[in-house]
Design a protein around this nucleic acid. Structure first.
Lengths: 341, 341
DNA sequence: TTGTACGCGTTATCAA
DNA sequence: TTGATAACGCGTACAA
């Protein structure tokens, strides 16, 4: 059996409550006893029991991290480990622990979240995605449980603390960039349309076309649920059009990679034949051939700030909701081409 | 205040212990009361308190995952998210939760582990790395705390349950492959020499040279602590030699990517001028230019089996230690070249 | 088949 | 400045 507060108390000739106070560094305990108690704690190798503490305390110093339900391969998208890095860094700074969701379907994850919340297993939750009409987000809001979202909540965005890029604006900006390069046949390849990020980026893309008075083609907008294979499918579809696009706005680097590889196999040159610009600027964007022009959305910072907001929220439950916008920046590399007209 | 077992008991006109038994599905409770109690549990929205349970139970149904101390950018190597995927999958199957280490220095992580162990915060631990003379592994062994290692323990490998590839053999095999392609000036670029995996792969490489009676050059063995920049540094070093190698065995895809990119910048062609073969076969190996010949070490499976072993170990603490070898396979793509002699 | 009573290891309230 | 004592919510021997 492990050594408890009582063992320490006995050995130091004090009461358990005194030991507890020493742990909490309560100022009403004399320095002398503090020293003595600490000494015997070392001697006995005492470490507080986490669960007893949480039970008495009603706090766990743990944040729950909830990943989307992309059938288990979520972690294959470098976005998630990178955002985890950000969260982890901030969490460690404040001595918070990290508890991860492991389910794969939406229903599984929902059950996990309920268990975390009702079981008082974590003090707060970070949602790594935002989707339309999300059961989990609705639940957390109803329960008034502390949580923050990475991405923009589809509804009640003013009431929910969240961290996001200005995806609408950025998408418009990169589309403008392609237009300035002389492109008019510009396609948009997005991920799951249920994700708010996909919608925002698409809106930005459309707005750019409108402002440039470029006619809008339905066939130029494609949505793929699976990023990895999605790239290949999308490119096949686009190339089969009568008038294939000369430039692509792609919502995720991973998709762009798939496209690059597929285009290479088909002897379509990037950027000479087709220009590509995508989002996330994951570490490997620089290493692709050609190096990918991509929007650096500062993934690490998204995670870091989300953790920061959550911890603040846990400490001050009544503070007002916050929206944080992380700056994003297009990194020009070599996948976009000036179109001769 | 949340609804407790007592509330349910009162409402269902039974004692708290009966409710507890219903939760545990104790066979000595009549089906009728079970139904009634379950009914009121639903009505009241009862969910067991995790900490009370763990305290009474002395078990947490949680496994701790400990990442190496690579100054916070561990998660940038796709190996770790992928191994996490494997762990997560198995953990979910058995309804275990995942608790992540967040520290960055060895000392920080050690403290975290002690807190997990002594605080009874997790039932077992998975170490995602194996390094020479590792403080944490020594500690876990001394404490006889359930843990499994991904990689081969440097000492006491027979006593410690672990999951690994046969890195020595594979490294020998890929080196042989290069030799058969006609290469003799073959370099080895490894990661941190404190990692057992690096040593095993290097030994395999050396053995292949010995058996082929190829003289061994010290300058052909390079170790880089940082994978990302390491690739560039290593290639610079190798190319500056009087007799630069014509082929490379690289211990990590990430490094190989860095090399590929750097070589491209220097107009050195792969594979015509230099052949590269590396390890891990991360998802993006297929997308590089040229597609990378890489050893598929089955990262997911490493994690999955490690979790499996750990859970078994938790359930049967006295079972014998186990060593599981995950098969690996060279995936030939286009980064190796037949050298004309 | 069910209930009583105690223990799990802390923290917090109230006295002293 | 310190010590009893009662929670915190659940599991389980023992009794009934």
């Amino acid at each position: 059996m492990a050594v408890t507060i009582k063992d320490v108390a006995k050995m130091a000739n004090v009461s358990p409550s005194t030991v507890s106070r020493v742990i909490a560094n309560n100022p009403r305990i004399s320095e002398k006893t503090k020293r003595r108690v600490r000494e015997t704690m070392k001697q006995l190798g005492y470490h507080p029991n986490f669960h007893a503490r949480s039970l008495a305390n009603k706090s766990t110093d743990t944040v729950g991290v909830v990943m989307p339900s992309a059938a288990h391969n979520v972690l294959q998208n470098p976005f998630f480990p990178e955002v985890l890095r950000g969260i982890s860094t901030k969490a460690y700074e404040n001595r918070y622990g990290l508890y991860l969701s492991t389910g794969t379907t939406e229903e599984e994850i929902f059950e996990e979240v309920v268990t975390m919340v009702q079981g008082r297993r974590v003090d707060g939750i970070i949602l790594l995605y935002s989707r339309v009409d999300d059961q989990i987000m609705n639940y957390l809001e109803e329960e008034q449980f502390p949580f923050t979202v990475i991405g923009k909540p589809y509804i009640h965005a003013e009431r929910i603390t969240h961290v996001d890029n200005d995806n609408y604006y950025i998408a418009k900006e990169v589309t403008d960039y392609l237009i300035q390069l002389g492109h008019e046949r510009i396609a948009f390849v997005g991920g799951n349309l249920d994700l708010v990020v996909t919608r925002d980026r698409m809106r930005g893309y459309q707005q750019a076309l409108i402002e440039a008075e470029i006619p809008f083609h339905d066939e130029y907008t494609i949505h793929e649920k699976f990023l990895k294979e999605g790239g290949r499918d999308a490119i096949a579809e686009l190339l089969s059009l009568d008038q294939p696009p000369t430039a692509l706005v792609v919502s995720d680097d991973l998709m762009a990679f798939g496209m690059l590889s597929h285009l290479d196999n088909m002897n379509v040159r990037v950027p000479e034949d087709i220009s590509i610009i995508s989002f996330n600027n994951i570490m490997l964007s620089d290493y692709s051939r050609p190096p990918l022009t991509s929007v650096d959305i500062n993934i690490f910072q998204l995670g870091f700030e989300a953790a920061n907001c959550l911890i603040e929220k846990i400490k001050h439950p009544n503070a007002l909701p916050k929206r944080i916008t992380i700056p994003a920046k297009m990194i020009k590399r070599q996948s976009c081409y000036l179109l001769k007209s």
